[in-house]
Design a protein around this nucleic acid. Structure first.
Lengths: 234, 234
DNA sequence: GCAAAAGTGTTAGTCCTACACCCATGA
DNA sequence: TCATGGGTGTAGGACTAACACTTTTGC
């Protein structure tokens, strides 16, 4: 790692875990760094927080600039402040996560001059990341896994209309274990916030499955007290 | 609020929620500010994070300087970074909490020149706090309430030896609701991490209750997977 | 002996888990 | 007609919630 830029004093930044789900796999958005330190390494997309900008805003801006998506429910999960986490100076970073629908059509933009490109990478086979980004990933992913059981965050990853089997596949990908089909369906439907559509799956060479929608309105009514991150945005 | 000190640029700080339990009440450590802004207001004890100091270290230092207690399990819970949360400049602050045993003998020291004194204040009747400290309090307290049901954090607040009724009183103080005596005892004992002592309560004018200890070793064995904050320190 | 808290079981309802077969569809 | 996933019910065990009386102790 060569480095000839001058050192700096304290700054803060945000780093984002952006999860997506594609081809039955859970993926995360990474950038490939084009500058030292950690030139050519993969890293989490991150940004320095600007003087007149809240943390939440910085996180949303990062996602927007990478994916073109606005108003995503970004959630803070932990702040990393070890003295030596950045070789060039003191950087305290706030970890955020978002769960989004991958839009295969839309091209990813590089987030800054530091990044050669951005890409979706399966979480199952993540390489070592720059800085302490591997730690950040593990901390955040563990949090999401715990949250999944209590809050309806999975729907942010799926297309608007989905089958119960797709939903189950997603749960299995996040929790990394097989679930029982009958129990899973019973439980999901018992929550009462899935809306069954008349529309069915099309273009499959087997019995077409019913499609469902996540009904935010119903969810909010049912769980008025313990608001989930998805519900929080309305 | 008068203020004639010069403004500053970005700095980071930590603010601590230090909980204690005394006389059947849940209390929190506050300082009374002796300087503008928010002169004479109550505030959370907080500190600026020094250049060569990790966030965790700054939090532990704060507690040590106020209470003389070392090596407490300080836990980060959220970071607050709104642009205008401090009238004198940009201050991003990381919220930490700790649960400790109040030692009535030991006098509290003021944490800095900014604070006239430090005191234990019941959480039930908290006044408005300086800056956004009321928000910080509510966010952190909500987190602890949720955590209490899953993790054995209550024992940090009690004396080493305690009765089941004392333990129940503490749970009731934190959750702010009455619990059923028989069910509470059954459940607590079923966890298997309470050690019954031969020693009994003394000096009470009614049937003396059995004393118990929280057995960290047993707890760690039973819940090797999902480590709690108390277990984390060994 | 009285006041005050300690201590103790059972029942009904709910939730969780494990488990296997027939159905509808397109190729 | 076959391959593929879609869709369905039950029974046993575990956990939860509700509920009231007797025991021990110090004064």
């Amino acid at each position: 790692m060569e480095d000839n830029t001058p050192p700096f004093n304290s700054i803060f930044s945000i780093d984002c875990l952006v999860f997506g789900y594609e081809a039955g796999e859970l993926k995360i958005l990474l950038i490939e760094r084009s500058e030292d330190p950690f030139k050519d390494w993969y890293a989490l997309p991150g940004y320095i927080v600007q003087q007149e900008e809240s943390l939440d805003h910085a996180a949303e801006r990062t996602i927007f600039e990478l994916t073109g998506l606005r108003d995503l429910p970004m959630k803070q999960f932990h702040t990393f402040g070890d003295v030596d986490r950045h070789p060039k100076g003191r950087v305290i970073t706030v970890g955020y996560y978002a769960l989004i629908r991958i839009n295969a059509q839309k091209e990813l933009r590089s987030i800054s001059s530091m990044a050669r490109k951005a890409l979706w990478h399966p979480v199952k086979t993540l390489p070592k990341l720059a800085f302490d980004h591997s730690d950040i990933f593990h901390t955040g992913f563990a949090k999401i896994r715990r949250r999944l059981t209590h809050q309806p965050i999975a729907f942010d990853l799926l297309p608007e209309k989905f089958t119960l089997t797709q939903l189950q596949g997603l749960y299995e990908a996040i929790l990394d274990k097989k679930l029982d089909k009958r129990n899973f369906r019973k439980k999901m439907l018992s929550y009462g916030y899935l809306k069954e559509l008349v529309e069915k799956q099309r273009g499959v060479s087997y019995r077409a499955a019913k499609l469902y929608k996540f009904d935010r309105r119903k969810y909010a009514k049912i769980f008025q007290n313990e608001m989930g991150p998805s519900a929080a945005q309305q």
